[in-house]
């Protein structure tokens, strides 16, 4: 593989995992957020070769249409998405955040979302979805 291939492009083009979206491709919008060894990172700011030997989790690993992750179910219930383009990145940002902060204050939720751009919702319903999910039970 060419070393200049970004992890985001490797996931989408080589593995066909198109759940990870690419927006700005310079680390601002957060749409391409995935977990690298359990931590949220921008996959457009990592070379695919750098993930060698590490565990990468994408939105495809979160839940399925038949069996939604509790956070995905809360997003559906609270109408936390409209066009849905930013949603995978937001979910992958929030999952480790909620593991670390199982019962966050609203200000903490908004700060956690600060690295993800959403141009549809105005964020309010996303915050509501997180509140619906919290406090999160251990091992959710």
């Amino acid at each position: 593989m060419e070393p200049r291939l970004l992890l985001s492009d490797f996931l989408r083009q080589d593995l066909g995992l198109t759940g990870t979206h690419v927006g700005c491709e310079h680390g601002v919008c957060g749409a391409c957020t995935v977990l690298l060894d359990g931590e949220a990172v921008r996959s457009c700011l990592i070379l695919a070769v750098q993930a060698d030997g590490h565990e990468v989790a994408t939105v495809e690993g979160l839940g399925s249409v038949e069996d939604l992750h509790p956070l995905q179910a809360a997003f559906r219930q609270a109408h936390a998405l409209q066009c849905g383009f930013c949603t995978p990145g937001i979910l992958m940002t929030l999952v480790p955040f909620l593991d670390e902060h199982p019962n966050p204050a609203e200000s903490e939720i908004r700060e956690a979302l600060s690295g993800n751009l959403c141009r549809c919702t105005g964020y309010q319903n996303i915050v509501d979805a997180v509140k619906l999910s919290t406090p999160v039970p251990a091992g959710w």
């Binding site: 990172v41 700060e111 690295g115």
Partner: peptide, 12 residues
Amino acid sequence: MPFIAHPQIRNR
């Protein structure tokens, strides 16, 4: 530290 960009950036 928390003022530096966003958690996703600070993780890396």
